[in-house]
Nucleic acid binder design. Structure first.
Lengths: 108, 108
DNA sequence: TTGATAGGTAGGGAAATTCCTACGTATAGT
DNA sequence: ACTATACGTAGGAATTTCCCTACCTATCAA
């Protein structure tokens, strides 16, 4: 399943950080993305491959650079999976709100 | 980081499914949760442990059962991480909307 | 107390992940 | 044509993950 690959890709802090970098500016060449990581380049390439195969980024060649672009629609799969749970924590927040209201009422 | 453990826990389809089961009804005993998985019990126990250590579920003992409860606030870490990306796909959707509008305009 | 049920821990093997060094390929500049 | 740059693939070691069987502990029921 595609969802599986997306979640598996997000399991690595390195790969999540790459997506954050691409959120700031996209597309960007590999060297620029790799700059912040204390890691050999082939290791970093491997992370990019995982992101690519999950559909989270796409690659375009430009001269001798390869520009990686954020493909944000893949993250919608995460959002979609998360969505049914959202109701639950809204309830929690509502309850928290009630408690705060109570404290407020008592305090006044 | 706690975020790391949450994302790592969600990387497994089995564990995501467990959370979905707990969304339907929570808390539930282990046997009930394990019913749908073709897996030895100790393997399933291990998945529960990962979920517990990520803070995604909590355990309470009740007689000889252990009731697992969904702890949905741990998923907020995912939501929080995802949030900055949301703007991006809203833009994509807006663009898609424009295209559909254009088609509509041409069609009329 | 004996036996059945619920669910865990211990330990181990296969496979996947994550990192490395060495090397290959393509493009750009001189 | 030569050299440097950008980035990948190949192959391998260490670690982690995911599953197993065997066994232990606690509770309930007869």
């Amino acid at each position: 399943m595609a969802e599986d690959q997306v979640f598996a890709a997000l399991a690595s802090p390195v790969r999540r950080r790459v997506l954050e970098l691409l959120l700031e500016r996209s597309p960007r060449p590999v060297t620029e993305l790799a700059a912040g990581f204390a890691m050999a380049r082939p290791s970093f390439s491997e992370h990019l491959r995982v992101l690519r195969e999950a559909g989270l980024v796409s690659e375009r060649r430009d001269g001798r650079q390869r520009l990686y672009r954020l493909e944000v629609q893949a993250l919608e799969e995460v959002q979609d999976w998360l969505h049914p749970f959202e109701r639950f924590w809204r309830e929690r927040l509502a309850q928290l709100g009630d408690v705060l209201d109570d404290l407020d009422t008592e305090g006044s």
